[in-house]
């Protein structure tokens, strides 16, 4: 279970406060959608969960299965099951994709006391996951994300997620940049991963994604705070009316 309590975070470099008291609980098996206008702090929240040190937590806590993860570095959080599918996945020239996948998977496995995977088993899994996501495996011969189109990068994020089998999946606008068919493929991929012991935080601007990945709860983030929570109908209401009314009520 993820429990975010009165989370305040600021940009480390200049001290600008972005998150101003986020409260949010996501239970195992739950899919929580996070919506909110541009600049409201959604990506920042995802980064703070993943442990990016460009941000400083000044107040509050993030508990994962009852324990604070704030002192853990990003790799330790990943080993504890946290995964962030980036809004803008990075291109890393010079790092071969397969080597990266193998290193990541085996680092997580060893940190959990599991045996490292051998290359053939690894390849088998990568092939299975990429065919499910309708990705051409030859892309993975390239350096990490280098030259991938916007949509290909998003698929590659989900491919990583499938391989790493995290317990907390944070998807930051995975739908943006995907064409209509790709959206369905990726959503199916996510839906396959839905299970009782896995929680999702799905950040999106559009109902379209939520038609495919039907959320259990919807939360509206505004100026670094959750100003409204509801069921899946809240997203439909937003699609219809925009944020103005809810923001007005919160003010």
């Amino acid at each position: 279970m993820l429990e975010i309590k009165n989370l305040h975070a600021r940009i480390a470099e200049d001290g600008t406060e972005i998150l101003r008291g986020v409260d949010l609980t996501v239970k195992p098996g739950e899919v929580a959608a996070i919506m909110g206008p541009n600049g409201s702090g959604k990506s920042t929240l995802s980064y703070v969960i993943a442990g990016r040190d460009d941000y400083e937590v000044t107040e509050g806590d993030i508990l994962w299965n009852g324990e604070s993860i704030l002192e853990m570095d990003p790799a330790e959080r990943a080993a504890a099951g946290v995964f962030l599918a980036f809004q803008y996945p990075m291109e890393i020239p010079g790092v071969p994709t397969m080597e990266f996948l193998k290193t990541a998977l085996n680092a997580q496995r060893t940190s959990r006391g599991e045996e490292a995977l051998k290359i053939p088993e690894m390849l088998k899994r990568v092939k299975a996951a990429s065919s499910e996501l309708e990705m051409d495996i030859s892309m993975l011969k390239r350096p990490l994300n280098v030259g991938f189109s916007g949509g290909e990068k998003k698929r590659a994020e989900i491919l990583q997620m499938k391989l790493l089998e995290p317990k907390l999946c944070v998807l930051d606008e995975t739908d943006s940049g995907l064409d209509i068919d790709a959206l369905k493929v990726v959503a199916d991929g996510v839906n396959h991963l839905r299970s009782e012991d896995r929680a999702f935080l799905v950040i999106t601007h559009y109902q379209r994604l939520l038609n495919h990945i039907v959320p259990d709860s919807v939360h509206v983030l505004y100026k670094g705070r959750v100003i409204r929570s509801g069921g899946k109908e809240l997203a439909l209401q937003l699609e219809d009316q925009g944020y103005a009314e809810i923001i007005g009520e919160a003010a």
């Binding site: 990016r52 790092v95 998977l105 680092a107 997580q108 350096p143």
Partner: peptide, 23 residues
């Protein structure tokens, strides 16, 4: 950060990036 967020410990991640710089 990207590499570490996938569970690669910092020293390994650094080594990968140092190598990448020339590769």
């Amino acid at each position: 950060f990207y590499l570490m967020s996938r569970g690669i410990p910092e020293n390994r991640a650094r080594a990968l990036l140092v190598k990448a710089f020339v590769a």
